[in-house]
Every structure is written in C-alpha cells, then in structure tokens.
Design a protein around this nucleic acid. Structure first.
Lengths: 196, 196
DNA sequence: CCTACCGATCGGTAGG
DNA sequence: CCTACCGATCGGTAGG
C-alpha cells in the first residue's frame, strides 16, 4: 500500500513536470501560472504543492535534466577512439535527435534557464560553459589535425548549437520532410561547412 | 515652445523604448516590470504613461521595427541582379551585422514576440513567415541553378537564421575575436556548408 | 512628472 | 485533493 502510494506520487510528479515543460515552452516560465498548470493537470492549484515544492523546482528539474543528458553524452564521446570530425558529428546528431524527440524540455532549458534561482542558476551556467568548452576543444583538435578548416572554435560551437535550436520551427511547420531527412540536411550543411 | 516640447517628448519616448529593449532582453518581457523600467529611466512608474500607451506598445514597437528592417533588406536584395549565392551571402551578412549592432532589439524580437497582443501578433507572424518563404525561394533558385547543393531550402533558412542568433553568446563572452572576424567565420562555415 | 491608489493576478500556505 | 485565503506585485488610472 505504501509502495503503491509512492509509485502514484512519483508518476504524478512526472506528469506535472511534463505538463509544466509544455506550458513553459508555450507561454514562457514567467507567463505560465500555477493555475494554468493545475488546469491542464486537472486539479486545483493548491493541490500541486502536494507533489512539488515550488514553481521554481519544476524549472530546475527540467533544466538540470537536459544539461545532464548533454554532459553524459560528451563524457561518452570523449572516451571513444574517434577522429575529431566523427566526434563532432555524433554530438551534432545527438543535439538534433534531442530536439526531435525531447524538444519541449530542451527548448525550455535553452530559453528559460535565466529564471533559475540559486544555486541552480550558477550550476547550470557552469555546466553549460564547461560543455561548450569541451565541444570547442574537440573542434580545436580537428583543426590541429587538419580535419577541419581553420576557424574560431567557439564560433563553430555557437553556430551548431543554435542552428539545432531552429528545429523548433520545424515542429510548428507542416513537416513536409521527415525527421531523418531534416537530420541529414543539417548534418550535411554543418559538417560540410566545417570540413576542410 | 510647443516644438521643443514635442522634440523632448519624442526623444524621451525613444529613450524609454531603448531601455525597455535592454530590460526585456535581460529579464524577458513578462519578468520585466514597468517599475523596473521606470527605475532605469529615472522616473516613477506612473510617469512612463505620459510617453507610452502601455507596456505592450513597447514590445510591438521593438518587434515591428526589427521585422521591417529585415523585410526592407530582402526587398532590396531581390531587386538586384545577383546570383542566388550572392543574395544569400548579403542577407546572411545583414543578419550578422544586425546581431552585432542592434542585438538587443533583435533578440527581444526573436525571443519575446509570442507576448505580442493582437493585431500585432498576427502581423508579426505573417511578416516573419513571408520573410522566411522569400529567403527559402532564393535558396531554391540557387539549387535549381546548381549554385547550391540539393538540400531542403526551409531547413537551410532555419539553420542560418538560428545560427546567427547564437551571436548573443558572443556578446556575453570576453570577445577574443572581433566582430569582423566573427562575421567571416560564420559566413565561411555557412556559405561553404551550402555550396555545391 | 508625482502621490496615491485601483482591481487583478501571482506563488504559496493553513487546515481539513 | 479541496476550500479559503495571505501578502506581494503587477499594469495602469485619477487628479493635481
């Protein structure tokens, strides 16, 4: 009984976080109210607080989860024996796939992280900065090994990460092309843009 | 006297719009309060309403102004006798320069347009959609003339426009490279990515 | 341009 | 999970 209760509570919380991500994406964190959230969850606003501590908890659960997924991926990629160009392609494809499959969380994390409260704000900033540095280091390595044309590595990271965030518009369009096609198009343009 | 008054009023309004753009960029439209704005302008909140009609007016002045700048530019580019590839490069450079020089307005327009009220919201959406279609048409033309590799034109537009928005991070960084260098790097990667 | 103030809405709590 | 309610803050107005 106690276990069932716990299971219900945790899945209820997951539902709330999921609905919150959708709402934060649609209206923005500040404009989305807990009453809005309660409505889509199907309870009164006060009842949400039996599952979560605060509105800000919802945001940092979403942002930290996204940040961790990317950090884990780059850990994995760095450990492999691959050329810089291959590593970049794997990371790029991972970003694209995340935007295709978990785009609500990723968009919220990208766009609303400024509303994080401390210490989550500092943690997030640090994790993001570190991720970009590690990504840039892979590009530098590729430049040194002449796999990639001589450009500013930070600029290249910046272009790739932001280009991928454009996939949001793809979700809103009539989707004339498939996700796989979109991925191949993006990889073609960006990897070719970098290639020597 | 009446004329001086009018002049003062209009420049006062321009100052308010400028400070608003900065504030909306920093905190987001919803999180930025009129009291915050009053403070940076150096007056009481109520006094702002002698110069502007509402908070939402500030947002639509910013967004429509940005949208018009890009529409005017594509009008100009379309009228010229140039190859598709040249047209794309001109537009891309214009986007980069706007992000380097008027980035606060551009970022607000990009990120906060969802908070526009009607009829400005519909107008903005329409103008933006039209702009992207016209940009995509230039790319299609380039593909047809074999100047550009065979890719989905909408995806290419999406990548370029979003890649440019990454310049925001550049403003926040220590700016190891110059604006001109950044521009050349971005053009190199993106134009090469598209080139056949 | 200011003081004084408004109704609405916000995130969140108490108590059951 | 709900009713009832809180203090804070919001955009904006009246009146001078």
């Amino acid at each position: 009984m106690g276990r069932i209760q716990t299971l219900n509570n945790s899945s209820r919380k997951e539902i709330i976080v999921e609905k919150a991500a959708n709402l934060f994406k649609e209206k923005g964190y500040k404009a989305a109210s807990m009453r809005d959230l309660a409505e889509v969850v199907g309870v009164e606003a006060a009842s949400l607080y039996n599952h979560i501590k605060s509105k800000s908890e919802l945001l940092h659960v979403i942002c930290l989860d996204v940040a961790n997924r990317f950090t884990n991926k780059i850990d994995e990629v760095e450990a492999e024996e691959l050329s810089a160009k291959e590593k970049i392609e794997i990371l790029l494809r991972f970003h694209i796939q995340e935007m295709l499959n978990n785009y609500e969380d990723v968009i919220v994390s990208d766009r609303e992280w400024k509303h994080l409260s401390e210490p989550y704000l500092s943690n997030f900033r640090h994790q993001r900065k570190t991720y970009r540095k590690r990504f840039a280091a892979i590009i530098e390595e590729g430049i040194k090994k002449k796999e990639i044309k001589k450009i500013d590595a930070s600029t290249a990271v910046l272009i790739m990460l932001h280009a991928v965030s454009g996939i949001e518009s793809f979700h809103r369009s009539k989707q004339k092309i498939s996700g796989k096609e979109l991925e191949e198009n993006m990889v073609t343009i960006l990897i070719n843009g970098l290639a020597k």
